[in-house]
Design a binder for these strands. Sequence first.
DNA 1: CAATTCTTTGTTAACGTGCACATTCCTCTG
DNA 2: CAGAGGAATGTGCACGTTAACAAAGAATTG
Lengths: 348, 348
Amino acid sequence: MGRHPRKKTATIGDVSRLAGVSSMTVSRVIRSPDLVVAATRARVNEAIADLGYVPNRAAGGLSSRRTGFIALMLPTLTNANFSAVAHGLTESLRAADFQLLIAYTDYSLEEEERQLRNLLARRPEAIVLTGGVHRRAAARLLIASDVKVVEIADLPSRPIEHAVGFSNYQAGRTAARHLIDKGFQRIGAVAGSHEGDVIDHRGEERMRGFEDELRLAGLSTSHVLRHGLPPVSYDHGAASAALLLGRKPRVEAVFAVSDLSAVGFVMECQRQGVAVPDELSVMGFGDFEIGREINPPLTTVHVDFRALGQRTGQMLLELLASGEEEPARRFIDVGLSIIERASVRSRG
Amino acid sequence: MGRHPRKKTATIGDVSRLAGVSSMTVSRVIRSPDLVVAATRARVNEAIADLGYVPNRAAGGLSSRRTGFIALMLPTLTNANFSAVAHGLTESLRAADFQLLIAYTDYSLEEEERQLRNLLARRPEAIVLTGGVHRRAAARLLIASDVKVVEIADLPSRPIEHAVGFSNYQAGRTAARHLIDKGFQRIGAVAGSHEGDVIDHRGEERMRGFEDELRLAGLSTSHVLRHGLPPVSYDHGAASAALLLGRKPRVEAVFAVSDLSAVGFVMECQRQGVAVPDELSVMGFGDFEIGREINPPLTTVHVDFRALGQRTGQMLLELLASGEEEPARRFIDVGLSIIERASVRSRG
DNA sequence: CAATTCTTTGTTAACGTGCACATTCCTCTG
DNA sequence: CAGAGGAATGTGCACGTTAACAAAGAATTG
């Protein structure tokens, strides 16, 4: 406890003394003003303003068992789609006075458990996970705590509790199907390496779906290129293009595991004088803003990540408001769609 | 307080009972293990693992007066440079077990005070602000609380306490000077509107510096175009290009308030068959990754935002470790530089 | 107008932890 | 072997708030 030289920040006690009421009345003025008669309320509010009093939520949460935290675990913040999720989540939680606690793992399993422990130490009322939990110890921690768990983005086959998202595997298959339907035979793909400590599980799922669909159509997967560490970005696509354009016979169409990589790929084609889509079709994933802007604009698989975040937020509010201990499991597939732009065109 | 049907999450008391020690010993095992003899420590750790115990930081913080929170207030998360700041900050704070509390205002003054109040309610040990505080009431709240304040990104002329960043005004002047030195006379710029509720103060500073430098060189500012709501992005640049390319006589060089806008500008030039840089030079601000990748690669003003976040984090650690009530004010200018690429070339 | 109900405010205790101090048990020293 | 010093552990309380209950006054009812 505190044997401190001087306390500076005002407490509810300071306010109550100044206003000449009990601390409980102050608490009520803040949390349910209609329970307090107008005159008293005014006096208290004045004292609050005078002292610049801001309630201590840690203390309040300890007492009420409601911390007002929602935890969010992401692989990284430096990805427009993930920050869109965070953005959408905040939007729907803002009105309900929840505070988002963001942690990210930089795609490392090492960090996963550490970060999870840190988050749980804040006693969030719910935790939103991207791509599940991969370590046993981490999963055990989740079970021991009584937070509500929502997995988002990649829909797991066996969800821990609730889930909102889409199937990355399906996204890969859909992309392959799109290129096959356009009449292409030599279809390639570019993705990060799937060996090493840093693995993009969601991207892997897309590639798995992509290759499966190729095989089902009796096509070769030999033009699928894996290199570089995730998370992939523009330079990954540019490097991939340099590698893939040298091969003979040249591929006719390429799927990049991310729009960023696809954009880099197209730019490298421009530099090498390879016309997109006349000589080579390119498609991406994620519908990043930049894909709409380049020449030619990028055909891509679209998932509305901001809406995903918003829907997750709304679901959380319902879940938390209901107060049920064991609410029915929710499983929402937000789906995905192909956005046809000019970077892919029919063969021949 | 809690009259609750059943408590589920384990407390330090549960652990101490299971291990047959006092709760204080458990606390010590967690916070300073060397004070506890190995045998006891092992017993306690076993109990912790068995119960899946995770300390409650809210309770700990209340008692120790150290919450382990650092607050960060941003205009938006959906900007690569700001998320780079958050990323850099997290990196340096991670080892010290600080948790970043992120809030963003979406460039709205309305939200600023609300968010600040929410953050202060968590009693962060320091608060990192982007672009200062604009409302009186908000400033008063900051003063009443005893958090350490660090302003980052735009260096204020009169900092509240500490500051790490660069001068956006200087960035604008430097950009203008660069174009003037290249021999251009009809120099334009594109930025968001500076009227309305949503204002990008940092961008405004850059424009102010840009126009000042033009005027000092005796050049006209009539090609400076203002339109659209901040934050500006690709489509803003594209739209600006459409507007600016129609004017006669055409500008020779353009500075966009952000790389994203500059990229959109270049893409629109491509579509209209205007060669960059042969017919028109374009430069941006922020050195976003995409600027390096397009054709031609973008000349830009570079600021290392990730390093900015890291330096801020290191400074915070020193500030908080020292324990001084009134540490010396710190004011760090991380500077900026012009990155010359191919989108600007000398006139004539 | 007495009995009842509602409105408004207050009192008490507990939320889970860590600091300050106290206690116990060893180990050393001369 | 008594006394001093240190290492290991324990006790009590405070951190700032709110839930539950209590109390006092005002309004309503028959």
